[in-house]
């Protein structure tokens, strides 16, 4: 499955990337929201994993943009900090499909991604 990861912290980005590579996914990493939007446009991934607070373009804007574009079917998993229920709610209103709170377990993330990939098959 083609996955775009948008996360500004390098360590977290890499961790997710390596974990998902191990599961056999094709992963594109973006260090900020702007790059993410460009990449999403270009490669049309089957799943987006996005942090909320990112430079230039926030995760909410990514959700809003993708869900209002001609590719609203791409599922989006939101990565959020603990206690950001308000924002997660907002993300769901905008059409986000799932969320994971930080701190998160890479194994759990992998399972959730698997669920999406099965659904698409």
């Amino acid at each position: 499955m083609k996955i775009v990861i948008a996360e500004d912290d390098e360590l977290i980005r890499k961790t997710i990337q390596l974990r998902l590579l191990k599961d056999g996914h094709e992963v594109v990493c973006c260090e900020n929201g702007l790059v993410a939007l460009e990449q999403i446009e270009k490669i049309r991934p089957q799943l987006i994993i996005s942090d909320i607070m990112m430079p230039y373009v926030t995760g909410l804007e990514i959700v809003g943009t993708v869900k209002q574009s001609y590719t609203p079917e791409i599922p989006i998993i939101i990565l959020s900090g603990m206690g950001q229920e308000e924002i997660v709610l907002e993300a769901f209103q905008l059409g986000a499909d799932d969320f994971i709170t930080k701190p998160f377990s890479p194994n759990e993330l992998s399972l959730r991604v698997k669920r999406f990939s099965q659904r698409q098959k």
Partner: peptide
């Protein structure tokens, strides 16, 4: 610093 960032964001066995 890197270890702390990891610890802050990651749970479970990895942490």
């Amino acid at each position: 610093d890197k270890l702390l960032v990891a610890k802050k964001n990651i749970l479970g066995h990895s942490a």
